[in-house]
Simulated assay, not measured.
Amino acid sequence: MKIQSLTQATGRPFPFRLLNAGWGIAHKPDCLFERADYGYCTIEYVARGRGVLESDGRRFECGPGDVYFLHRHSNHRYWTDPAELWHKLFCMVDGELVDLLMDSYRLAGVYRIAEAPRLRQHFEALAALGGDGAVRDMRAAAIFHQLLEACAETLYERTLPARPEVVELKRELDGCTDGGFRLEEFAGRSGYSAAHLIRHFREAFGCPPYEYLMRRRVETAQRLLTYTRKSVKEIAAALGFSDQYYFSGCFKARTGVSPTAYRSGK
Score class of each variant (00 low, 15 high):
Arg106Ser: 05
Phe205Leu: 01
Asp56Gly: 13
Gly206Cys: 12
Arg35Asn: 01
Met102His: 03
Gly65Val: 02
Gln8Pro: 01
Ala253Val: 08
Met1Arg: 11
Lys266Asn: 15
Arg77Asp: 06
Arg189His: 14
Ile143Lys: 05
Glu84Cys: 01
Ala142Gln: 01
Gly109Thr: 04
Thr177Gln: 00
Glu184Pro: 00
Ala187Met: 14
Thr220Asp: 05
Cys91Pro: 01
Thr7Met: 08
Thr228Leu: 00
Asp37Ala: 06
Phe186Val: 04
Leu119Gln: 14
Lys266Cys: 15
Leu32Trp: 13
Ala108Lys: 14
Arg182Val: 12
Arg171Asp: 06
Asp99His: 11
Gly63Glu: 03
Ala128His: 09
Ser248Thr: 10
Met92Asp: 14
Met214Asn: 13
Ala83Thr: 05
His196Val: 13
Arg215Thr: 11
Phe247Asp: 02
Leu89Val: 00
Gly109Lys: 04
Ala125Phe: 00
Pro13Ala: 07
Thr228Gln: 04
Tyr38Met: 05
Leu119Arg: 14
Tyr78Pro: 13
Pro208Asn: 15
Leu100Met: 15
Ala134Tyr: 10
Ala150Cys: 10
Tyr111Leu: 01
Ser104Pro: 05
Ala128Met: 10
Thr7Ala: 05
Leu97Arg: 09
Ile43Lys: 09
Ser74Ile: 12
Leu32Phe: 14
Phe251Ile: 07
His196Phe: 15
Leu224His: 02
Val166Ile: 07
Gly57Val: 10
Glu96Pro: 13
Pro117Ser: 04
Phe33Tyr: 01
Ala47Trp: 14
Ala114Gly: 04
His76Phe: 10
Tyr262Asn: 13
Arg12Lys: 15
Pro161Thr: 09
Tyr262Trp: 13
Lys28Glu: 06
Gln244Ser: 03
Glu124Trp: 07
Pro164Thr: 02
Tyr212Gln: 12
Ala9Asp: 03
Gln146Phe: 12
Asp99Gln: 11
Thr255Gly: 04
Leu89Asp: 02
Ala128Trp: 12
Trp79Tyr: 08
Arg106Asn: 07
Val218Asp: 04
Leu19Gly: 00
Ala21Cys: 06
Gly95Thr: 08
Leu173Gly: 11
Ile43His: 07
Lys252Gly: 00
Lys233Ile: 12
Leu169Pro: 04
Gln4Ala: 02
His71Phe: 08
Glu34Cys: 15
Arg254Tyr: 03
Phe16Tyr: 15
Leu183Thr: 06
His71Lys: 00
Gln244Gly: 11
Lys233Tyr: 14
Asp137Ser: 13
Arg263Met: 13
Arg112Phe: 12
Arg171Ile: 11
Tyr156Glu: 09
Gly180Phe: 15
Thr177Arg: 00
Arg254Lys: 02
Gly249Phe: 10
Arg182Ser: 12
Gly191Thr: 04
Glu157His: 08
Ser104Lys: 08
His122Cys: 00
His76Asn: 12
